[in-house]
Amino acid sequence: MDSLRNSLQRLDPRSGHGADEPVSREREGNRFAQLRGSDFVESIPFWLPATLLVLLFVYGAIGWNVAISFTGWSGLGQPDYTNFTLEMYRQMPADQNFRASLRNTVALLVAFTSVSLVVGLGLALLVDRKIRFENTFRTIYLLPMALSFVVTAIFWSWMYASDGLINTTLAAVGLEALAFDWLGDPRFKLAAVIFALVWQFSGYCMIVYLAGLRSIPDDHYEAARIDGASTLTLYRRVIIPQLRSSTIGATVVLMVFALKAFDFIYVMFGDNPGRSADILAVTMYRQAFSASEWAYGAAIAVVLFALALTIIGPYAYTQYKRGAL
């Protein structure tokens, strides 16, 4: 009898409603899973043109690029698609420039991503403390994101110049010993680039984290306070763990950006920044468009693409699994 009662409880319309209603939507089927043949046909004009453009320009081009990387195409003339070879990939390991720029790319990726996240989180926590003029502060921190890398590279070239703001400020406070030739000294080149890129991107991290912070209900702060947590504990144990998805989203964006960071370095140093600051994106351009080593450039682009895939792939997959698509 108990089991019967239990099974009937499920049917009790009073206990059922509110919470069950979304479930019913699911059980009664995806609302749009109604494939009406005519709807599909009618919807084609809406998505097909854009889809074709994307398939051609993005995926078609990627495939084409892979194909080119298997040819030995260089110089003037056209690629020969009849003779595929792995030669381009074979020569990579021995290419000192390639190895240096791969190393620099990974260093840039790791340092830029982690520092940007930390600075962005710090900014978000500062801005989130019910401050006055919050909008103004936010606007200033995010401003660099609205600027072109060409613009920021020009600003920072001047910042880093021997008589630029950084060195003159250091001199003014008696730290002349720390005034270096930031963009000329191989020891600092990459770090200088990373610092400037962090400057440009930390505001982005800030707003991602702010959005995450704002989505945490006030109850959590209040509950933690009633539990007697100090501010530090509150953030460390309650708030920051809830920013996980913000962190993942921002990390993917930053890492993918780091892979293709081209404009900034190109404008600062031209197409050959030297071993200490060369990255794959620049090497690729130099090989293909400056040296006309098209196939080799394409092969480096394939490596870049593969690196990006290792970052995007898992992200897109988890998004898909979570039904976020």
């Binding site: 499920r10 409603h17 069950d20 209603e21 019913s24 009664e28």
Partner: peptide, 9 residues
């Protein structure tokens, strides 16, 4: 009917 019984469908 209860939620999910097919009435809306």
């Amino acid at each position: 009917g209860p939620s999910g019984c097919g009435k809306s469908t």
